[in-house]
């Protein structure tokens, strides 16, 4: 029981971290929270389901295509909805919230209220530590999640593009003075944030089938992770994601399954009370 809950916590935690990275990237650069993050996560799940089941594509191809499409959709959202609201954070909150409800209802019309599930990548299960069998699909999700997180870290810490991102999130005006086209960077980073949500979506969809409103709890948890880790901190997302994933699963295993969402909310309140800037957050001036 203990090891199983721990293992589940790791898998979910990695996915939470991935979803939170997308939120954190956008917050760090644009100071915008995308409330439709969960709906984009679900959109990628639907795309991969559609491509793999209806068009009979290979699952890897379907996933890549799904993430790419959501990336493009993210660019479109930034261009049409977010760009006109620069400097007014409140309006972007309102617009993305309306967008999330619109998307939920559109999914409901198109796909119906029933859960849809893309095919598993692998079958069978593996004996872990000689104590319990664990589904290979979940293990694959853990590996894929960790791989994407590593990729994000490499891009941000090691490449020229990553340097631009870090510079802009540290001091926007200074970056502009040094010739960074922050408008284009905003668009690109918003798209990337959506693509990270999409990556989380395609990885998790075979385990937790997608429904029109299944994105809400994932997005909420991603937000909690971002606050817990500290707004704009990448390591905060990873550590925070793992903490929330583990707490939820141990809580579900030992206290109550129905209330597993509530545990992360309690953590959020404790963080806000004791250390509002989060575990790794910069102290706001």
């Amino acid at each position: 029981m203990f090891a199983l809950a721990g293992m589940n916590g790791l898998v979910i935690g990695a996915i939470y971290a991935l979803a939170a990275l997308g939120v954190s990237l956008v917050v760090g650069i644009m100071n915008v929270i995308n409330f439709a993050h969960g709906e984009l996560y679900i959109l990628a799940g639907y795309f991969s389901y559609l491509f793999a089941n209806a068009f009979g594509m290979n699952f890897a191809l379907a996933m890549t295509l799904a993430v790419a499409l959501v990336f493009l959709f993210g660019l479109l959202i930034e261009y049409t909805l977010i760009r006109p609201t620069y400097g007014n954070d409140m309006y972007s909150l309102i617009l993305t919230f309306i967008l999330s409800i619109v998307l939920q209802n559109a999914y409901l019309l198109i796909f119906g209220p029933y859960p849809n599930k893309p095919p598993n990548w692998v079958g069978g299960s593996t004996l872990i530590l000689g104590s319990f069998y664990y589904g290979n699909q979940r293990l694959a999700a853990l590996i894929a999640g960790s791989a994407v997180i590593t990729l994000v870290f490499l891009v941000i810490k090691k490449t020229w593009f990553g340097r631009i991102i870090r510079a802009t999130s540290q001091d926007r005006e200074m970056a502009e003075l040094n010739g960074v086209n922050t408008k284009r960077l905003n668009m690109l980073s918003f798209g990337l944030g959506c693509a990270l949500a999409a990556a989380a979506g395609v990885i998790l969809a075979p385990i937790f089938p997608v429904t029109p409103t299944a994105g809400v709890p994932v997005a909420l948890t991603a937000f909690v992770v971002v606050v817990l880790g500290g707004m704009g901190s990448l390591w905060g997302c990873v550590i925070g994601g793992l903490i929330i994933g583990l707490v939820e699963n141990f809580g579900a295993a030992y206290i109550s399954t129905a209330y597993k969402q509530v545990f992360s909310f309690i953590i959020l309140i404790l963080v806000l009370l004791s250390r509002p800037s989060g575990l790794f957050g910069r102290r706001e001036a």
Binding site: I33, D89, L93, V227, Q261
Partner: peptide
């Protein structure tokens, strides 16, 4: 009192979480 020291985004996130928790309860 809990989240207004922190500014706008925190309030929006906390209230969204609160309303979802209330629904679950």
């Amino acid at each position: 009192i809990l989240c207004l020291r922190m500014g706008g985004i925190y309030l929006s996130l906390t209230t969204l979480g609160f309303s979802e928790i209330l629904r679950i309860v």
